[in-house]
Design a binder for these strands. Structure first.
Lengths: 144, 144
DNA sequence: CTTATCTCTACTGTTTTGGTAGAGATTATA
DNA sequence: TATAATCTCTACCAAAACAGTAGAGATAAG
């Protein structure tokens, strides 16, 4: 029932890129330092994110990473699906064939409905949402 | 992000008890057979469920288990909390002290909100709800 | 050509998960 | 009172997932 570090760190990685969106390629090393996560470990998340187009990279010196599209168009659901797989509480919701009981299984229906509650929230939240909320938070702090 | 077998089997165990609510103690062996789960494994779930009052037991011959209260008053959220622990996507939502970033962490806020979407669904669903839906399902089948 | 970066393969230790074994305690009933 | 059926408890185990590390190679800017 818990999100693994893959999902959590991945969102923070993408969020960091969103905060620096438009500033050219960002070094993984810098992200790692800002977020307090090992760069080696973060790199493992890059591959799947690249292959689904959520991230683009530039190699060589002065290389780095940028978002594959605007922050407004990247939802947390997308990110998590890439890093954690299907966002269902149980696998049989998306793949009924996993269990012969599926057609008549009430539990399965319930798991599906509960998963949806969470998924809709994550689908409606984009990186841009997070950036905005971060800015609001900083302003509130400053206004004290 | 997945529910473990503890949670899934536990709900099926409780659901089975709900289906036979009012018929006196139910043998664990019978539940195990009906649900296709090892009785030994199911037993591991009994302890926590008993200690939180969701189940009562009778020892000795003709012993067995009954629900600790009416099916209407047992929500899936209760069952899952006992078997899976806190129903949050990440631990820092319920225990901010786990991470020094908590006070300013936007991710954490998002995880909290997404968790809530799921939790409300699970809180509003009781064992009685499941029994009802099961009956409806059977009637629809029969009516075809 | 050197330096900073990304890319890739492989490995490893720890924790969680899912499950089993077997002995002991309790009670209905014959 | 014997016995059979059931719950109770401790301990153990194998496999998978998780979190992280090491080190060498490819690429491009200056």
């Amino acid at each position: 029932m818990k999100l693994s570090t893959r999902g959590r760190y991945g969102v923070r990685l993408m969020f960091d890129l969103a905060l620096h969106y438009g500033n050219g390629p960002i070094y993984l090393k810098d992200i790692a330092e800002r977020q307090g996560i090992s760069a080696k470990y973060l790199w493992q998340l890059i591959n799947p994110l690249k292959s689904t187009g959520l991230i683009n990279s530039t190699r060589g010196a002065h290389g780095g990473y940028v978002l594959g599209k605007e922050p407004e168009r990247i939802s947390l659901k997308e990110i998590l699906q890439v890093l954690e797989g299907s966002l269902c509480l149980v696998d049989c919701v998306d793949s009924p064939s996993l269990c012969e009981r599926s057609p008549s299984c009430i539990s399965r229906e319930i798991w599906g409905e509960a998963s949806k509650g969470m998924q809709q929230m994550l689908e409606n939240t984009t990186l841009a949402t997070m950036v905005l909320r971060q800015q609001e938070k900083l302003q509130n702090e400053a206004g004290k």
